[in-house]
Design a protein around this nucleic acid. Structure first.
Length: 205
DNA sequence: CTATTGATGTTCT
DNA sequence: GAACATCAATAGA
């Protein structure tokens, strides 16, 4: 059993964490995953919560496929279906752009740190559309490769949802500059009564 | 920097 | 109708 097969069999709550650092590309355009969120059938925020429908059918099919849906009528968002039971998926929320930078810049027209910083932005940068819904993530035009280096993982509540909003099912690469948004700062034992923010991940001049 | 708002296709109630 | 796993533009502090 190789790394991909293990990943596909992993429950989404763990797979979302494991996916950080994997390199995802579409037609050679993409980069390392730096932010994910987990969803599953018992999760009120999940598209699969109320059972299979035409839209979420891929979530109830075999793992290892991509589930693509339209968000707010404008954007596309891409998930990896995974887990031993149906209805589980990991939303890919941000990549560190590495391959096909020129193509991404042309498609996005934003500064490099915003090329793939969010589920909608990432799909625009890679060219993901509904046409990719149901495709295998480990076969052309997609590719998914394991990380070459370990990295730290931060955890926090998911973004943009109203139900189960307090569940800590968002994962990110520690200190990444390519996140859709920063993770909430860990509560610190109040040094000064003040408002010092953690800027430890800021670039040094 | 934060807060607000418009755009807009599908799904849900 | 209302809600929505979002984003860019804009206004204000």
């Amino acid at each position: 059993m190789d790394a991909l097969a293990r990943l596909f069999a992993t429950p989404s709550l763990q797979a979302a964490r494991d996916l950080i650092g994997w390199r995802l590309t579409l037609d050679g355009v993409g980069g390392a995953i730096v932010e994910t969120e987990a969803y599953h059938q018992e999760d009120p925020a999940s598209h699969s919560f109320s059972g299979p429908t035409p839209r979420n059918a891929v979530m109830f099919g075999p793992p290892g496929r991509v589930y693509v849906y339209r968000s707010y009528g404008i954007h596309w968002c891409v998930n990896l279906v995974c887990g031993p039971e149906p209805g589980q998926a990991v939303l890919i929320r941000a990549l560190r752009p590495e391959a096909g930078l020129d193509i991404m810049r042309e498609r996005r027209g934003t500064p490099d740190h915003l090329l793939c910083a969010g589920p909608g932005r990432l799909c625009q940068a890679l060219g993901v559309t509904r046409a990719h819904d149901g495709m295998a993530i480990d076969a052309a035009p997609f590719a998914l490769e394991p990380p070459t280096e370990a990295c730290g993982i931060v955890v926090g509540p998911r973004i943009g949802i109203t139900r189960a909003a307090d569940q800590p099912w968002r994962f990110g690469e520690t200190g990444s500059k390519f996140l859709s948004r920063p993770f909430p700062a860990v509560q610190r034992p109040a040094v000064s009564a003040g408002k010092a923010r953690d800027r430890s991940s800021m670039p040094r001049p």
